[in-house]
Design a protein around this nucleic acid. Structure first.
Length: 450
RNA sequence: UCCUCGGUAGCUCAAUGGCAGAGCGCCCGGCUGUUAACCGGGUGGUUGCAGGUUCGAGUCCUGCCCGAGGAGCCA
């Protein structure tokens, strides 16, 4: 059998016999004692002379294939010298349990076919700087660590959507090209739209308000763009945001939905990726176990007192800065809502508290461990006259917001919503210091490549 | 945009103003259970760019470019 597979390895012309099934590495434990084929790439290789190890990855995991000189034809054994890091290949071999092998299983190699011998690979299994890695992001994604992060991101998105779908929210896609700003404050990417100007969306929220009046409970999920020259570990110029919006929901309901949603997502990731978080990312998952409702609710007034008590001179009326958010979050063992910010610190559409018009019915959710704001939202102004006033006060053109004002003309109701930053959520769950590793191809102030 | 730090071999980094080096990668050789394997040998340089000071500049000075960390803004 080994002879036969070896001959095929040499010619490389034909596939393996039908009796050798193609298996993905994640499923090797179901094939102990069988001969299988793995299709993948060489992750690393080691040699001890007459016994040699090929570490093969296939996107689902890594397995070492063992080459023994006395058990293989020389032309197969010598392929070890030819194969380079990240060469594409197929290997055949017998699956066996082996405590000395990483992952607990290994392949007793019987055949090896090289598809392409890779040129010298830039990312060696050693340390690299962030600029080098970012320049090679298209290759960096092959590394074990990046694979775990991307799989967590995939699971986070799936979990968010599963919860919302199960709670009768309807996915309504918001446009990317828009004629107007949402917040009216942040800098937008401008582009030509035939004879006029268009802007890349910074939020789908206004459109979700329209959709909520049609469907009751809706959400959008897509990329958003901010042309701010932010240069911090929490900012990207292109990032993905989940924005639920609910008719007939007040601020309390808004916060209740958020804590249920976030708790569900964290639990899902822990359940399916807990061991990978610990083993590959070295993430201490104990703090994540605490993420269960209810989350503490802290009024802005009390948050200010907390910050001032720590010696920070922050006057009432100012928005909280990143260090302040960290300071507040340190007082709690799970995410904390800060609600009822001063109206002047928030966007024009935030509804003032009827009992205290100087504060808005809004809330930000601050993640623990210094990760800061992961959601922001609140109750929207539902009164036509007040909304018109707020537009005017913020110097926003009434014409572009005509459709938005229509929502207050035709059957207005109290409604609330929020936005969740996917990258910040993933960074927090994975315990990463910077959001740039949580998106496949990050767009930053000085990065548009690859 | 502002503040701070940095830019030396393909990569990660050393080098009192005095011969530009190490580890990894790569090439050659050795090793029958390796774990970022190990051991021996070899290869590898416009010290970010432009100017200046000096007998002499990777090192000091000026300007510019690029990057990192932080601030503001926000998710």
């Amino acid at each position: 059998m080994a002879q036969e597979a070896g001959a095929m390895a040499e010619t490389g012309a034909k596939g393996v016999a039908p009796s050798v099934p193609v298996v993905r590495i994640a499923h090797l434990n179901e094939h102990v004692g069988q001969e299988v084929e793995i299709q993948g790439w060489l992750y690393n290789k080691r040699s001890s002379g007459k016994i040699r190890f090929l570490e093969v990855r296939d996107g689902t995991g890594i397995v070492q294939a063992v080459m023994v000189r006395s058990e293989l034809p020389p032309e197969v054994f010598d392929l070890y010298d030819t194969v380079t890091q990240e060469s594409s290949l197929t290997v055949q071999g017998w699956v066996r349990q082996e405590s000395r092998a990483p992952g607990g299983y290994e392949l007793g190699l019987t055949g090896l076919r090289l598809i392409q011998v890779a040129e010298p690979y830039p990312i060696t299994p050693k340390e690299h700087g962030i600029e080098f890695l970012m320049d090679h992001r298209h290759l960096w994604l092959r590394s074990r660590r990046q694979q775990v992060i991307m799989r967590v991101r995939s699971e986070v998105v799936k979990a968010f959507r599963d919860w919302l779908d199960e709670h009768e929210f309807v996915l309504i896609d918001a446009p990317i090209l828009t004629p107007n700003a949402v917040e009216g404050t942040t800098t937008l990417f401008e582009t030509n739209y035939f004879d006029t100007k268009a802007y890349l969306s910074q939020s789908g929220q206004l459109y979700m308000e329209a959709a909520a009046m049609a469907f009751g409970k809706v959400y959008c999920f897509g990329p958003t763009f901010r042309a701010e020259k932010s240069k911090t570990r929490r900012h990207l110029t292109e990032f993905w945001m989940l924005e639920p919006e609910m008719a007939f929901a007040d601020l309390d309901e808004d916060m209740r939905v958020q804590e249920e949603l976030i708790s569900y997502v964290v639990a899902r990731v822990l359940e399916r990726f807990g061991s990978l978080l610990r083993d590959v990312l070295e993430r201490d998952t104990i703090p994540l176990e605490n993420v269960k409702p209810p989350f503490p609710r802290l009024a802005y007034d009390d948050a200010i007192k907390m910050v001032q008590a720590a010696g920070e001179p922050l006057p009432w009326g100012e928005d909280l800065g990143a260090p302040h958010e960290t300071l507040i979050a340190e007082h709690f063992d799970r995410p904390v809502f800060v609600h009822r910010y001063p109206v002047q610190a928030k966007a024009f559409y935030m509804k003032p508290d009827p009992e205290r018009p100087e504060v808005a019915l809004c809330a930000d959710l601050l993640a623990p461990e210094g990760y800061g704001e992961i959601t922001g939202g609140g109750q929207r102004i539902d009164d036509l006259q007040l909304l018109e006033e707020r537009l005017q006060q913020n110097g926003l053109p009434k014409e572009t917001y005509k459709w938005y004002l229509d929502l207050r003309r035709y059957g207005t109701v109290p409604h609330s919503g929020f936005g969740v930053g996917i990258e910040r959520t993933v960074a927090w769950i994975c315990g990463l210091p910077h959001v740039r590793e949580t998106i496949p191809f990050p767009r930053l102030l000085n990065r548009l490549y690859p």
